[in-house]
């Protein structure tokens, strides 16, 4: 692959790059892969590297939905949220732009090599640094303004997960200064990685996005495609206790010992219930505990919408905290 150098006035030059608030726009950009089409709608999706399963899920579903509308997904190719957004865009057959903090000939982080290659083939890799520039931590916040510059003025920048001092929040601040529309995916108060987006929403700087449709509504987009409702997981087969367990879990991984304390159920009953939930693909066991999967999250929503959801939180009759 060859690296092209583009400057202002080039047909490929992202014209919005000059409207990035008070920040200095780049003099030139180094590009690999497909040419950038500055007229196409784009959305930036940014977030933490330490994402939870729920965060990855949100990034992927938003990316897939906007790609179906023919939009371009812009992100920074870091681990976690960035990678999930790029991947989902590519898998949905869409185009994606990765703005790197290194030279475009370098894949950083190295574990994203497969993604880097795929973006180079069907998407675009851009950077303001010449080939051979290694990763340096001070380059990454600066490249965030270029992510913003790839989105037209008034266009959307979505913050999925991030702490209150994260790079994702830096991007959000650049985006606000550059009068882009900032959106944030809310999360549980227990989830440290939801603190950033929650704060953006609380302070009124960002609009809440809990589904891709919220994004389209806010931008008053006429949808080309009907969004495909995902298959509802069967929650009928779950026992009351299994339902209750599922509701006790949230975005962050929950350890079995915590579940034990919160449910007050003996381990001998908790253990098979957890295994059943896992066999149904609703939760997934990781070293740090159980996390709700995408279909688990849908099942939770089903349960909470169903009549009588309140009673699920009550203690179960006939079960005490016996040894």
């Amino acid at each position: 692959m060859k690296t092209r150098v583009i400057t202002r006035g080039d047909p490929e030059w992202p014209v919005h790059m000059d409207e990035i608030g008070g920040l200095p726009p780049p003099e030139q950009l180094y590009v690999r892969g497909k040419p950038i089409d500055p007229s196409r709608a784009a959305v930036a999706i940014v977030g933490t590297r330490r994402a939870t399963v729920a965060g990855l899920d949100a990034a992927a579903s938003i990316a897939a939905a906007v790609v179906r509308e023919g939009w371009i997904v812009v992100s920074g190719m870091a681990r976690g949220i960035d990678a999930a957004a790029h991947r989902a865009a590519l898998e949905a057959g869409g185009s994606t732009v990765a703005v790197l903090g290194t030279g475009v000939d370098i894949c950083y982080p190295p574990r994203n090599t497969a993604l880097y290659d795929a973006i180079g083939q069907t998407g675009t890799l851009i950077s303001e640094y010449p080939d051979g520039t290694p990763s340096a931590r001070w380059n990454f916040p600066r490249r965030n303004r270029i992510i913003v510059g790839c989105v037209p003025a008034g266009g959307p920048v979505v913050v999925v997960e991030g702490g209150v001092k994260s790079g994702a929040l830096i991007t959000a601040r650049y985006a606000i200064d550059a009068s882009r529309e900032v959106f944030a995916v809310p999360g549980s108060y227990r989830n440290a990685m939801a603190a950033g987006p929650n704060e953006l929403i609380r302070s009124g700087q960002a609009a809440l996005v809990a589904s891709p449709d919220h994004l389209f509504e806010a931008l008053e987009v006429q949808l080309h495609s009907r969004s495909v409702p995902s298959a509802m997981p069967a929650v009928d087969g779950l026992s009351p206790f299994q339902k209750r367990l599922l509701l006790l879990m949230d975005d962050v991984s929950t350890t079995p010992s915590r579940l034990q304390v919160e449910s007050g159920i003996a381990w001998s009953e908790l253990s098979p219930a957890l295994a059943s939930l896992e066999i149904r693909g609703l939760v997934s066991k990781r070293i740090s505990g159980y996390e709700v999967t995408a279909s688990g999250a849908r099942a939770r929503r089903c349960l909470l919408d169903a009549p009588g959801a309140e009673s699920l939180a009550d203690p179960l009759p006939g079960t005490g905290s016996s040894g």
Partner: peptide, 9 residues
């Protein structure tokens, strides 16, 4: 089921 919960993932 018990083995599934206790196994090393």
């Amino acid at each position: 089921l018990d083995a599934i919960t206790l196994r090393a993932s």
